[in-house]
Computed example of a mutant assay.
Amino acid sequence: MNSLEELQDFIKSKNNSKNFINASDVPKICRSEPCMLGVDEAGRGPVLGPMVYGVAYCPIKEKKILESLGCADSKALTEEKRDEILLKMLTENDAINNVGWAAEIISPNYISNSMYKRAKHSLNEVSMNSAIDLIKKVAECGANITEVYVDTVGPPEKYQARLSEIFPDYKITVAKKADSIYPIVSAASIVAKVTRDHSLKVWKFQEGLEMSYTEFGSGYPGDPLTKKFIRDQIDKIFGYPLLVRFSWSTAEVMLQEKAANCIFEDVDDDGQTKKANTKPISSFFTSPNENGTKKRKLHKFFEERYLTRDNAFE
């Protein structure tokens, strides 16, 4: 991958209702020299689009390369500057030979389903699991990680203790605003932010909606374009396109106001309708009959939302 266009093409090739990882090759020097690794995220707060976790790593003795790239907190940089820095990481020899990176694109669909499970997974839990999995992936690919720096989720002391237990051989540092303190976390922040930005630019609505990212805005609840999208793009039966985190209060409130109320009727064996009563939709995800009748194939709508006949959200 040597251009932002190739980054977009890679993202477009994936199913955006599911999580996926994009990663560089491990630089040869990172397999032998002790390396530091930074972790940060982008898109934690928006009601639209994915959350992206990014990691960047390089030899401890080569951290000056990060400064020469201009790594700083991605929030303090313009979109053009972030793109420029990531492009350097993708194309310039010094960066390619010394700096590795990886990003997990966490779909809004996965976020919502995690928060609505019976055994609920909070956004903090989703975030920590992604960070842990990315660190493991980089190490499994051969990078010689010895130090890890993380922009915190929740209390830094608690997060650091958890990571230290999982990675006892690493020096772990978890801090608030780590992206503005440690250049390696700044690099991770840029990887995450640019990946999220380009994920939105090439978002393909599986529901068939024809709309450019310039029409639904940044995804943050305060954005006027995002507000308009949440207000206008609601289906009274199926709710929102998969771009929307339907577990967010912004979406929940609108669904309560505009979505249809569903009443399910009981039907006797002879086909006669009983008195109407409200039933949970999970009652329709049933096992085969005792006589061995084959299960009906789930519609794509339910598969994409991880709904099964045994439990509506597992």
Rank of each mutant, 00 (worst) to 15 (best):
T278W: 08
R231C: 04
S247W: 10
G217K: 00
F229L: 00
Q256G: 15
S283P: 04
F238Y: 15
W248M: 12
K275V: 10
P224S: 02
T273I: 12
I234L: 12
D266Q: 13
K258M: 10
A260T: 06
T273R: 11
D270K: 09
S218I: 05
S283W: 08
D235K: 07
K227H: 02
Y220S: 05
A276L: 07
Q233C: 13
K279E: 03
F216T: 02
K236H: 13
V253Q: 14
A276D: 01
K236E: 10
A276T: 05
Q272C: 13
K227F: 03
K228M: 06
L242Y: 14
T226G: 00
V253F: 12
G239A: 11
F229K: 01
F284S: 13
G219W: 02
D268C: 05
T214L: 13
N261P: 08
D235G: 06
E257R: 10
A276Y: 08
I281S: 09
S249V: 07
S283R: 08
V267Q: 04
D268W: 02
K274H: 08
P241N: 06
G239E: 09
L225S: 03
P221W: 03
E252V: 15
I230H: 00
F238P: 10
G239S: 04
T273D: 11
D268K: 12
L225M: 04
A260L: 05
C262E: 14
S249G: 12
G222N: 15
A259I: 01
G222H: 14
E252Q: 15
V253I: 15
E252L: 14
S218Y: 05
D269S: 12
R245Y: 10
T250W: 03
Q256K: 14
K258R: 11
S282T: 04
N277R: 15
S249C: 06
G222F: 12
V267R: 01
Q233D: 05
K275C: 06
F284E: 08
T278H: 07
G217S: 00
K275P: 03
F229R: 01
E215L: 02
V267W: 00
K279V: 03
A276V: 09
I234A: 06
A251S: 14
E252G: 13
I234H: 08
A259V: 03
A260F: 12
D268L: 10
Y220L: 04
K279L: 04
K275W: 11
S282N: 05
Y220A: 08
K279G: 04
G222V: 13
G219A: 00
P280Q: 05
V267L: 04
I230N: 01
K279T: 02
L255P: 08
V244C: 13
F264H: 04
V267G: 01
G217T: 00
M254S: 10
Q233P: 00
P221D: 08
Y220H: 06
F246C: 13
P241F: 07
